[in-house]
Design a protein around this nucleic acid. Structure first.
Lengths: 178, 178
DNA sequence: GCCGGACCGTACGCTGGCGTATGGAAGGAT
DNA sequence: ATCCTTCCATACGCCAGCGTACGGTCCGGC
């Protein structure tokens, strides 16, 4: 009837993580969400930690696919613009990122967050290099841009800023490219 | 013998929050930390939520005092520099801030984080206005600077960046002042 | 000296979540 | 038709943390 797969569990766990952070990735609640009991879970996974890691892997690959998709845009400036517009229009990813930052005591959480961030930083820096910036400058600007994005997402999340400034994308682009 | 006050509880709770986030502000562990039992706690407070709020209030006033102290620096440029150097040298505050961002589902948490952030943004913007920026530009630059700070703190926390870039303070200052 | 209030220890019940054990149901292989 | 494998439900024991009940101690006022 139900026939739930391990991937179903991972998806539901990621959903729970987006809503309540890694701490909310609990076996029984996710089971209820899937309309299934714990018996199913412990057949597919060994313990709760494995579920958290599955959700993290799922998030990492899904963000990776977005970057893979963007990589295909030939013009580096257009690529950066597409990235920014995607980032500022996807509150879910920002929410997950910030939750992982908050839960970074768990080494598994911190490592995934770190890998994802570094991949993004590398992606931005590579585009900037293609645009003629020397490597070190490209890395510096990438870091500053991505930091600004993350911080703004944080301020949005707590309501210190109510809307993303309408010229934010242009602003960051200008800042990076000049 | 021990004679613990409500303030002692609030301090210990803030300590626990800095280490493990709001979720780690649990009655029994904090009691142990104070060398006391729950009996003491439920004398001074009504429930756990009250303890969390006490810790939040404590953090808010303590960050407020820092700003009050900085307000006394007459030269606005020196004031901003002092703020930045303080911020980048105080990992504890950054840690608490980021944890609150992560736990912003709790409205009490979000509101304190919001108030603190807005106070800081206002403080920076005021200094920039004194330096001749028109109000809107001052607010924009304050937002961009503070976002950058927060984001960098996040990246440091997860290890995506291992050290605060040595010229970060100068960089942000230049960005704000020009 | 004792008495009442401030303060705390201890013991208890309750809940939510983890992990285990065990017994099915359902479907394909033979 | 039977049997093995896959998948799941149910029931259980366990632990941490919340909140309550109640008793005990210490100390100032009288």
């Amino acid at each position: 009837m139900a026939k739930v797969t391990a991937d179903d569990w991972a998806n539901a766990a990621l959903e729970a993580m987006a809503e309540g952070g890694p701490a909310a990735v609990a076996v029984e609640p996710v089971a209820t969400r899937l309309g299934v009991s714990k018996g199913s879970f412990y057949w597919h996974f060994t313990n709760r930690q494995a579920l958290v890691e599955a959700a993290l892997r799922r998030w990492e690959t899904s963000t990776g696919e977005i970057i893979d998709y963007l990589e295909e845009i030939p013009d580096p400036a257009a690529r950066l613009r597409a990235l920014l517009e995607l980032a500022f229009s996807d509150p879910r990813d920002a929410s997950v990122s910030l939750r992982l930052v908050g839960a970074a005591d768990d080494p598994a959480v911190a490592e995934v967050a770190r890998r994802v961030s570094q991949r993004r930083l590398g992606y931005i820096a590579a585009a900037l290099e293609q645009l003629g910036h020397p490597p070190q400058a490209a890395r510096d600007r990438a870091l500053s841009a991505y930091s600004g994005y993350l911080g703004l997402a944080a301020l949005l999340r707590i309501g210190a800023v109510t809307e993303v400034p309408p010229n934010a994308v242009e602003e960051v682009l200008r800042e990076m490219l000049t």
